[in-house]
């Protein structure tokens, strides 16, 4: 592949990060009325239909878009993994932790988006109890498999902190990534509570988790990754910690 083509591919992949963010905020958050999500653990199936799926028919369209754009998280993660080289230019276990977490997180958005779209489209034609069951199942997958993204954040965070020669991302961003990945742990409480900060739309398990993940992790790494892919090839080598070529 020619160098200029390679650069173009990298830059396109880097921009899938911001596109992912905009798409999720619009399609998952606004169009699918998930800011915050309905407190389904405290709702009967009939309430879930009346106050959510039946009330907002556009959820189906929004969630199909989520299923599509959700995979942009995977493409962004693939680029990050390709950048995470060690001092020998190899991809090590931390790169693969990041990559596997990124692939599975993208899959999460696609899979749960499709499930919620099905709930929306089948509203009115099947038993509300089945709708709630599928809705709940999708949320359990979305929230309770947090470890998928935590693993990605630890892989990326550890590489950022431990690879002392790289200057692509500052160390504090790596520490932030690991801290935020750890802050996901209270998501395990979501299935068991019907109110309070650890409910599905609660202060911690929704507002704090999503906003810190978005602004203190994804936004930060997006910024530095975009800076990196617009550097010259030589500057990229030096940012990775390799000596300047003669």
């Amino acid at each position: 592949m020619e160098e200029s083509t390679k650069r173009a591919v990298e830059r396109a992949l880097a921009w899938t990060g911001p596109i992912f963010v905009v798409a999720m905020v619009y399609f998952w958050g606004m169009m699918s009325h998930n800011i915050p999500p309905p407190n389904f653990m405290a709702m009967t199936p009939e309430q879930l239909i009346a106050e959510y799926y039946g009330k907002y028919p556009e959820i189906g369209v929004g969630m199909i878009a989520v299923a599509s754009f959700g995979m942009f998280y995977t493409t962004w993660s693939c680029l990050i993994a390709s950048v995470m080289r060690d001092e020998n230019g190899q991809m090590g276990p931390l790169s693969f932790l990041e990559l596997s977490g990124g692939i599975l997180t993208g899959w999460l958005f696609a899979f749960t988006g499709a499930m919620w779209a099905a709930c929306s489209q089948l509203t009115g034609t099947i038993d509300p109890g089945i709708i709630k069951m599928v809705h709940t199942f999708a949320w359990y997958i979305f929230d309770c498999t947090y470890m998928i993204t935590t693993i990605q954040m630890f892989g990326l965070g550890l590489w950022t902190v431990l690879n002392r020669k790289q200057t692509i991302v500052p160390a504090w961003a790596g520490w932030c990534a690991m801290a935020i990945g750890t802050a996901f742990i209270p998501l395990v409480l979501m299935p068991f509570v019907t109110e309070g900060p650890f409910a599905v739309g609660g202060t911690w398990n929704f507002w704090l988790i999503f906003s810190t993940w978005l602004f203190a992790f994804f936004g930060v790494y997006n910024f530095y990754l975009l800076k990196h892919v617009y550097r010259s090839p030589e500057a990229q080598r030096q940012a990775l910690g390799f000596a300047a070529t003669a």
Binding site: A171, W172, W175, C176, A179, T182, A183, P197, T203, W204, L208
Partner: peptide, 16 residues
């Protein structure tokens, strides 16, 4: 850096 960020996480817990 690690201590500072860890402290922020705990203080968020305290606040909630």
């Amino acid at each position: 850096t690690f201590v500072f960020i860890d402290m922020v996480i705990f203080f968020l817990f305290f606040g909630v």
